[in-house]
């Protein structure tokens, strides 16, 4: 497959520079790769949930979007997209719209795992020809790093902070991709921005598969994960290598593992470099919590291998 640079040169840049996203942010990379996976002759309508990506790219009177874009509210990116997609079908049938449009709804984990889950579930169940892309940075980063349903066990957030008595979020993260798999979509996948070939192939498959498709991409957040701007790809990669965030896809109900690490790394390798887990190591090593996290990662990985027919 061609490099991202080569693909970018032959496809349309629909999200330009000059926006206010952080240097190194996973979400911007995710969105650029997603849009470059479209054929240049196709138009796209993007619907946004309130979040970093939304506020940072459209500060009036500026917009970083070269394509059609609408932000409605926080919890309804999918429903809004379903309305636009329905309008397209109605107007196309009547000959009032000529161009070919694709429909991309996006949201962060707050707008997808939590407040937007009903809207997403409804839109997927109704079978709209659209793609929902979640950039999962594992907390409400836009409003200052508050805990969400996607925040991993043990992470310190501003609403579930590490203190003298409590050590960050007590619960494990919700398995949203699994919830979407239960919707029996024609296509869904989990990916990372650090592997453009994997991610762009999945976005392309989602765009060019008829019906509702879903892609979940882990999105390292520089200030929220308390990492350096040049660490976002490393953190995404470690999430894959530790099997915290496996790469897989479900095609018409068939589960397929896209990457099996030669040597599965311990989850501590992913936790340790991130400031949001620092309290698990200092002042005291909380091996008990790290072990709990490892056990849950192992359990989910085992389940996934079985679903993918990989044995365990």
């Amino acid at each position: 497959m061609a490099s991202f640079k080569e693909i970018a040169a032959t496809t349309r840049q629909r999200l330009t520079g000059g926006h206010r996203m952080c240097a190194g942010c996973g979400a911007t990379i995710i969105m650029r790769q997603a849009l470059h996976s479209l054929d240049p002759e196709d138009e796209v309508v993007v619907t946004a949930a309130t979040g970093c990506m939304e506020v940072s790219t459209t500060i009036y009177p500026y917009s970083a979007w070269k394509c059609s874009y609408i932000h409605n509210a926080f919890e309804n990116s999918a429903a809004t997209c379903s309305g636009a997609e329905t309008a397209y079908r109605a107007l196309k049938d009547k000959g009032r719209v000529k161009a070919n449009y694709k429909f991309l709804a996006f949201g962060g984990d707050g707008g997808t795992y939590d407040i937007g889950l009903q809207s997403l579930s409804g839109a997927m169940e109704r079978g709209h020809d659209m793609v929902y892309l979640c950039y999962d940075n594992e907390a409400y980063m836009n409003t200052g790093y508050q805990r969400s349903g996607a925040t991993p066990r043990g992470a310190s957030t501003t609403t579930a902070p590490a203190g003298k008595k409590r050590l960050g979020k007590p619960q494990f993260n919700k398995d949203l991709t699994g919830i979407l798999a239960a919707h029996r979509l024609p296509y869904l996948a989990q990916s990372v921005p650090s592997r453009p070939n994997d991610f762009m192939r999945k976005m392309r498959t989602a765009f060019y598969t008829e019906g509702p498709c879903f892609v979940n991409a882990i999105s390292p957040c520089i200030p929220g994960w308390r990492i350096a701007p040049n660490q976002s790809f490393d953190m995404a990669e470690l999430a894959v290598q530790t099997c915290f965030w496996p790469l897989y896809e479900v095609i018409d109900g068939e589960w397929k593992l896209n990457h099996k690490p030669k040597e599965k790394k311990p989850v501590v390798d992913w936790l340790m470099p991130q400031g949001r887990f620092r309290h698990l190591f200092k002042p005291d090593l909380r091996q008990d919590i790290i072990d709990e996290i490892q056990a849950e990662v192992d359990r989910r990985w085992h389940e996934l291998l079985l679903k993918c027919g990989e044995g365990a």
């Binding site: 309804n76 429903a79 309008a87 107007l91």
Partner: peptide, 11 residues
């Protein structure tokens, strides 16, 4: 929400 998306799309 769907009405907003639809009306914004010109329907």
């Amino acid at each position: 929400s769907a009405c907003v998306g639809s009306s914004a799309a010109g329907a």
